[in-house]
Amino acid sequence: MQKAKEFAIDVQVPPGECEFTGGWLDRFKACHGIVCKIISIEANSVDSTSDDYQNWQVDETAIFFKALLDKTLEFSAKPCHSGKTNKKHLTELVCANMSGTEKMPLHVLGRSKNPRCFKHVKKLPVVYNANKKVWMTSIKFTEWVPNVDEQYMMKGRKITIIVDNCPAHPEVKNLTALTLVLPPNMTSVLQPMDQGII
């Protein structure tokens, strides 16, 4: 804001024509795409000699559908309390090509095999599966990958999917249309799913 005031004086903007307030600064940042980011420590250990993969990405995220907000506006003198955070959640596996023009159907994991809310539902817009912990496991992942491989084999296409190397993403062998790439320490560089899509 101070620098903007100096520039205004240099280019002889008449006094009072521009006010360099906090609102002006917010609009300036929005206009020029300036955002506050968390500095990724993982990026320091990236191998810059690795190939630049340009195909598909896959990652999971949890949806805490019963969780309340953990922040609110309140007068400073008043106490601000809440009950325990509700940990009920679903997990969704998201997979798309690097440009976002093609997306696989969401793969959603819930707790119940046949939830009551699905009673009269004939078709879901997602692939639904269940396990007790409601997290992606290596078993569920190794069930998902061959299904995707078969779909793309039938389409006559070959794709590369970049997967982060967590224990829930083991190597899957005997694939025809898919190549799974699990590079270590590459999430911060190659994982657009972590950079805002999810």
Results as ranks from 00 to 15, higher is better:
residue 41 I to N: 05
residue 197 I to Y: 09
residue 88 K to S: 14
residue 75 F to I: 08
residue 122 K to D: 13
residue 196 G to T: 06
residue 177 A to M: 04
residue 64 F to C: 11
residue 144 W to R: 00
residue 1 M to H: 07
residue 144 W to V: 01
residue 140 K to V: 11
residue 188 S to L: 02
residue 90 L to Q: 00
residue 149 D to R: 03
residue 173 K to Y: 05
residue 128 Y to V: 10
residue 117 C to H: 02
residue 151 Q to D: 08
residue 119 K to F: 13
residue 156 G to C: 00
residue 89 H to F: 13
residue 21 T to Y: 04
residue 26 D to G: 09
residue 135 W to T: 11
residue 144 W to A: 00
residue 76 S to Y: 12
residue 24 W to P: 07
residue 65 F to I: 06
residue 53 Y to Q: 07
residue 198 I to C: 12
residue 135 W to P: 10
residue 100 G to M: 14
residue 131 N to K: 13
residue 3 K to V: 15
residue 101 T to D: 14
residue 3 K to F: 15
residue 14 P to T: 11
residue 20 F to W: 12
residue 144 W to I: 01
residue 137 T to S: 13
residue 86 N to L: 02
residue 60 E to M: 03
residue 131 N to V: 14
residue 93 L to A: 15
residue 188 S to Y: 00
residue 139 I to M: 07
residue 95 C to A: 15
residue 168 A to H: 04
residue 107 H to T: 08
residue 89 H to R: 10
residue 8 A to E: 01
residue 72 T to N: 05
residue 163 V to K: 07
residue 53 Y to V: 10
residue 129 N to T: 15
residue 11 V to A: 01
residue 139 I to W: 02
residue 82 S to D: 08
residue 118 F to T: 03
residue 152 Y to L: 07
residue 9 I to C: 03
residue 183 P to C: 03
residue 55 N to I: 06
residue 25 L to F: 13
residue 35 V to L: 06
residue 94 V to P: 00
residue 119 K to T: 14
residue 57 Q to E: 12
residue 132 K to Q: 14
residue 94 V to K: 07
residue 48 S to Y: 15
residue 151 Q to I: 13
residue 2 Q to M: 07
residue 67 A to G: 09
residue 133 K to C: 14
residue 104 M to Y: 04
residue 44 N to H: 15
residue 77 A to S: 10
residue 39 I to H: 05
residue 178 L to T: 04
residue 105 P to M: 03
residue 76 S to I: 15
residue 130 A to N: 15
residue 117 C to E: 09
residue 59 D to N: 06
residue 22 G to L: 08
residue 162 I to F: 07
residue 20 F to P: 01
residue 113 K to S: 01
residue 71 K to Q: 05
residue 127 V to C: 08
residue 90 L to H: 06
residue 65 F to S: 03
residue 185 N to S: 09
residue 180 L to C: 04
residue 57 Q to A: 15
residue 147 N to G: 13
residue 59 D to G: 05
residue 144 W to H: 02
residue 15 P to R: 14
residue 49 T to Q: 11
residue 188 S to R: 04
residue 15 P to F: 10
residue 16 G to C: 05
residue 130 A to I: 07
residue 124 L to K: 06
